[in-house]
Design a protein around this nucleic acid. Sequence first.
DNA 1: TATTGTTATACTCTATAACTATA
DNA 2: TATAGTTATAGAGTATAACAATA
Lengths: 146, 146
Amino acid sequence: MNKDATLALQMDRLMRRFHSDMHPRAQKVDAAKVGPIGGMILFVISEQSPITAGEIGALLGRDKSQISRIVSLLIRKGLIEKTAQDGDARRAPLRLSDTGALQVAAFHGALVETSKSVLGPLSRDERARFSELLAKILGAQGKTDS
Amino acid sequence: MNKDATLALQMDRLMRRFHSDMHPRAQKVDAAKVGPIGGMILFVISEQSPITAGEIGALLGRDKSQISRIVSLLIRKGLIEKTAQDGDARRAPLRLSDTGALQVAAFHGALVETSKSVLGPLSRDERARFSELLAKILGAQGKTDS
DNA sequence: TATTGTTATACTCTATAACTATA
DNA sequence: TATAGTTATAGAGTATAACAATA
């Protein structure tokens, strides 16, 4: 089979593997029932805060309507808050609440466990190399994301 | 941030990137309207045939109920057929029809284009190295898939 | 009793479009 | 006129469970 097609199939299988491993772990710690995308959004906010809904959408590659809906949910559940606006009133920078920070810590643990489990077959060096390759893939085209 | 968590976030972004790139390409060639998972199922059958629904589910990491539903759709659309049974009557080995083979060729092209596009930032050597790492990740645990 | 596959259901994710408000 | 965000809708993917047929 063509090497590029092989890569595509490998990618699909890896994505499924990751998802299958992550799902039960995430559910177990998802006390606030925010779902996998809710968890990703919390995670992104914990990394870069304050951040607007549009920026989150660009980072995660999801449509703004989806981000908007889940952000509303997260606010309703008290996990994130809108910060005081200084400039553009259309933008609504978001930050974690204390409860949200706790939830992120739980998700973080699940993420780490999943990474370790799925990437377990790789040595430490290989894992680092893998991460570098991912960074190169994402970085080159990713600049236009944000 | 923890390296394992970084990897998890990179994985999510890569998956999204792949999906976003693949979706419009696949739609364009999806003459029979079988959807992305329908395309993956056709693709798997084209690689290993005859193959049962259960084996497809294991390979793709999807639930048997989902495979069953889409396999029914693919049969209804004339893209695959059940082969004559020789042994276990519960199992229903599947194979591509001529129409299905044409559809697979179209999907194959879309897969190759997506791989080239998303993995474009990598050199030929890096891409080979990336594929090797994927094989190692999938191979070690993947044996239990089938 | 276990396995293969089917069917039904409910939930989540997703894309699209129309909309409001701000700039 | 353009941008940030909201809301509504429809469609696709998913997990779960109950079920039938076969082993």
